[in-house]
Structure formats: C-alpha cells, structure tokens
C-alpha cells in the first residue's frame, strides 16, 4: 500500500514577530485546508494511505471534522491514520512522529511548518525524503507552493512513477556542536550567534545582538537572517559550500564593521546590519565561533545557550538529506506524459 507521512505543526507562525513585524498568521482552518488538498491530490495519483501526526493544537480536530463528513463527488482522500502517540504540544511531537513514520516505512513525509518544523523532522529522519510547505513566519527552507502540486509530486515519487534519481534533490545542513558534542543540533538554513544568553521569546530581530551567521544557502530573495548572506554573496541551495558572515561592531571591537547592509531580517523589517567580513564555508570544515557566551539560533529561533569558554563549532555537510524536488517532478511528469490518460475513461 503506497503510504506517505504528513506532519503539520499547529503552532508555527505564532511568535513575537506578529507584534514586532506584522508577520502573517496562518489560521488553523487554513492549515487544515492545505492538508486536505495534499490528501486529495496525493490520492488522485495513487497514494492509498497517509500517516498523520496527531496534535492538540487543532489540526487533528478540524481535520477529523472534514473527514467525518465523508467523500463527495469533488473530494476523495486516502485512508488517513493517526500515529499512535500522545501529543505533548512540544517539538518532541515532531521528533517522535518522524521516527514513527520512518518505522512505518513511509515513502516520503509532507511537512507543513516553518524552518524550525522542517529542522525537527530532518534531525530525526535524514533518510526519508521530505516535501515542505511553508506555514511559518519567514521561511527560507520550505517553499511557498500550492499544496495540490506538492501532493501530486510526492505521489508521483511514492507510487513509483518517478525514481529517486528523478524526484529527489540533495540538501545541505549545518551541524552545531558545543564542547565536542556535549550539546549538538542541526540547522537547515542558518545558525546565527546572538549575544543574548537566554532563549526568551525565541525569535531574533535585533541586529545589534547578532554576532555571526553561518548559512547553508543564501538567497537574495529570502527574508530572515539568511537574507544577510543572500545580499552579500548569494549561494544556491544546490551549490557546493555555504557562507560564513561575521557581523561587525564598534571600531575598537575585535570585529569592526567594514560596511552596513540593509537586509530584510524579518517580514516587513528591513534593517541596517553591520558587517565585518564574510567568507565561503566549505563542506566538512569546522568553523569555531569567536563569540564568548551567547545563544545559537537555529533557523531563526534561539535554541542553544552557551557560556564564555564553551567551544562552539559549526560544520557544513553536503548531501545531508533528500527533499522531493516538486518543480522537477512536475517537469518530468509533463515531458514524459505521466499524467496523460486514454481518450475514453
């Protein structure tokens, strides 16, 4: 039975950036509509079963209301099963769901969330292809894409119409290690060093608190902290290597600013950021953080606090995990006529 997984985070796009930056709020009802479109599109192309992460944030409850109404002439969906787990309403739910889905042998996982949700899935499950849909605040990793198309692309791969070589693309990530691995984590887009030393409301939005940024890719059209690199020296998602940016401070500091850059560090928030210098970040070469004491923000959220004297190292890895390349899948489907049907039903 062709099976895929679906992880939808009900709490992405709920943080302080709604106040400070007029960031969008994607309502639960909209998220469930997105899920429904994935289900119906995937079912149309042969997905028979979808394993869904349960949650207590409203997605399961509302999805269940939709599904309980039964199939209509316009909508049919595959068998939907919830993972056997008790939601905690923390990121642990995503970790566990990813592990359970791998154990269940899903062909791919559709992820609805921001950069952080995708990071959580990849942290637990680097070998299952993921297809991301952006429902977060300022996402660089998941694409803004109509979920119907994502559902179709995933189904083309999951049902075997497209091979892994055709459907999947490799991705880079950053490995963060504190004191030789006493604490470790990953980032999919950016690991940013902040002079803050507490987690607080998690988001980063004060340029003066930024110390350094390490980026897997840097898109000049991105918003968020990776935009700093994107506007200095773009690096593609599939290009080799990444970018390391040292933020600047006063003339008498260890890293005096050599220029100031206007960058959209959050939705609607274009701020001058002082830059000291930047350099390419080759794969597998650890970069040691100069800042003494602070917080490592992973994909835009303060996560790991470290003290002066702690040794923080960041290493870029290539070919770290696969994603479903939706654009490529649909291009091949068109060129190879995969969606053509006989002239009579």
């Amino acid at each position: 039975m062709t099976t895929i997984g679906l992880i939808a985070n009900p709490v992405s796009a709920r943080d302080i950036r709604r106040i400070i930056a007029n960031a969008s709020n994607l309502q639960i009802a909209d998220r469930v509509n997105i899920v429904m479109r994935v289900l119906t599109a995937a079912h149309s192309l042969g997905v028979e079963r979808v394993l869904v992460m349960p949650d207590n944030g409203g997605i399961r409850a509302l999805l269940q209301r939709h599904l309980s109404r039964g199939h209509s002439q316009h909508q049919r969906w595959p068998l939907v099963e919830y993972l056997d787990m008790e939601p905690t309403s923390t990121v642990d739910d995503t970790f566990l769901a990813a592990r359970l889905m791998r154990g269940a042998g899903v062909a791919a996982i559709v992820v609805l969330g921001g950069d952080g949700t995708h990071r959580a899935v990849v942290r637990e499950c680097r070998d299952i292809p993921i297809a991301g849909l952006s429902t977060g605040t300022n996402n660089a990793f998941p694409e803004m894409r109509e979920s119907t198309i994502t559902g179709m692309a995933v189904a083309l791969y999951a049902s075997g119409r497209l091979s892994a070589a055709q459907a999947l693309a490799p991705n880079k990530l950053l490995e963060i290690s504190i004191n030789g691995g006493a604490q470790s984590d990953i980032a999919l887009v950016d690991a940013v060093i902040s002079t803050d030393r507490y987690i607080g409301a998690r988001a980063l939005w004060k340029p003066e608190a930024l110390s350094a940024a390490y980026l897997t890719f840097a898109d000049p059209q991105a918003i968020g902290l990776s935009a700093i690199g994107g506007l200095l020296q773009p690096v593609g998602r599939r290009d080799p290597g990444g970018l390391a940016v040292q933020l600047g401070h006063g003339a008498h500091s260890a890293h005096p600013a050599t220029l100031r850059l206007l960058a959209p560090i959050a939705p609607g928030m274009v701020r001058p950021v002082a830059i000291a210098h930047w350099q390419a970040m080759p794969a597998d070469q650890p970069f040691t953080v100069a800042q003494q004491g602070g917080v490592v923000a992973l994909d835009g959220e303060r996560e790991l606090a470290f003290d002066p004297g702690d040794r923080v190292q960041i290493t870029l890895r290539e070919n770290a995990f696969p994603t479903v390349d939706v654009a490529r899948c649909m291009q091949i489907a068109a060129c190879d006529g995969l969606l053509r049907l006989p002239s009579t039903p």
Binding site: R14, R18, N25, G57, Y198, G200
Partner: peptide, 27 residues
C-alpha cells in the same frame, strides 16, 4: 483551537508563548 486565530478574526496580532518560561513571557 488557536487563540491567536481568534484575535486574527478581529484584525489583532496575537502571540503564543510558553507560559511556564518567565523570560519568554517577559520578553
């Protein structure tokens, strides 16, 4: 299900924080 959604219905910004974390609430 989401109180932030409830605020959005009236055009108000809403934020969710971990209410057991003093520093998250304070900020």
């Amino acid at each position: 299900d989401s109180y932030v959604d409830r605020a959005a219905g009236f055009g108000l910004p809403g934020v969710t924080v971990d209410g057991t974390d003093f520093f998250a609430v304070h900020e």
